[in-house]
Design a protein around this nucleic acid. Structure first.
Lengths: 176, 176
DNA sequence: CCGTTCGTTCAAATCAAAATGAACAAACGC
DNA sequence: GCGTTTGTTCATTTTGATTTGAACGAACGG
């Protein structure tokens, strides 16, 4: 962050409102993305773009945030795939310029559909298998609480279904 | 996991239905808790208790999962605080015995209220500060896009509010 | 074409979160 | 009380994820 402050204020004004705002935005989005278990660099990049008046080329991002070219490249790739940044063409400059896209419902939807749903579905399958095994165990009269375990698994399945119903509702609600 | 299989099947039956079920449950809950960014050990412990007919003492958990006493102790403490396990007294055995509590809505609610809400509220405050700075920047005519940034921050605030409204709705829905 | 700029990839280094285990404290039985 | 069992704490170690940076390839401009 030293880098950020430094290069932005560059010995001009005293209170450096712009630099503070940049730093805050970076901070804000870093903790935001961490809620979703995404790497910090993602938040830094988005935070910077969010308060930038114009689209920035990658090397500006690298130098302003003091991160490596590799991180920036990978981070921007992910952000693009999330629909959170878009590239803008700037006349007479062949570098890609990136702009933050405040597309919250798209981003959250993407997150749900790509990170949560697959897990839920995989979970479904495994629960089904567990149920099968538990039934077998009960038939074979293995162990004392086979019936109790069976009941538990079935209860869990109900919750799983509930969760799977909830997600689309949330997505719909976010979309309006 | 070698430990789990080993101690459970203990050279009795061939196909080891019970051992498979245990392993699967552990697996299932490990990936479940990881969605919420909780440590793996939490999932292991809960997964084991979930398919155990009777409450287990800590040393059983330690030996069946092959984890350390420290992990088990800390993990159980967290699970208790989540209301996900409860201790049962077993006559003539002074060790604490733990039982899985299939209390999904309580657990998820706890997660929302303790992990998400505080972050959202902290975010609120920071957004407010950012807005203040952006207004100042605009007044001082710093930078070209001060007005655009202001608009963005306000839009973000709207989304933040939306999110904060959504959470209680989700919680209510989960509770019935 | 050839040199330069831009961007990606991936093995290695770094870093933070979690697990370990030894030391400690508390509760019990004798 | 005194030794033993049970459970917690916390400094150290381990592990896994992220970041780095050097090497590479592609696209452009002259």
């Amino acid at each position: 962050m030293a880098r950020l402050q430094e290069s932005l204020s560059a010995g001009i004004e005293g209170s450096d409102t712009a630099g503070d705002l940049h730093a805050m935005s970076v901070d804000f989005f870093v903790s935001f993305v961490q809620v979703f278990g995404l790497p910090k660099s993602i938040g830094q990049i988005y935070g910077l773009l969010f308060v930038s008046a114009d689209p920035l080329p990658m090397d500006d991002i690298v130098s302003q945030l003091g991160i490596s070219k590799g991180s920036a490249s990978q981070g921007l790739a992910l952000l693009k795939s999330l629909g959170a940044v878009t590239s803008q063409a700037i006349p007479a400059d062949r570098r890609e310029h990136f702009e933050a896209d405040l597309n919250v419902s798209r981003i959250v939807t993407h997150f749900f559909e790509n990170r949560l749903q697959p897990r839920l579905e995989h979970g479904d399958r495994r629960l089904e298998e567990m149920l099968e095994l538990a039934r077998a165990a009960k038939r074979d009269k293995k162990g004392g609480g086979a019936a109790a375990v069976l009941t538990r698994i079935q209860a869990l399945q109900k919750w799983q279904k509930r969760g799977r119903n909830l997600l689309p509702m949330v997505v719909r609600w976010l979309k309006r």
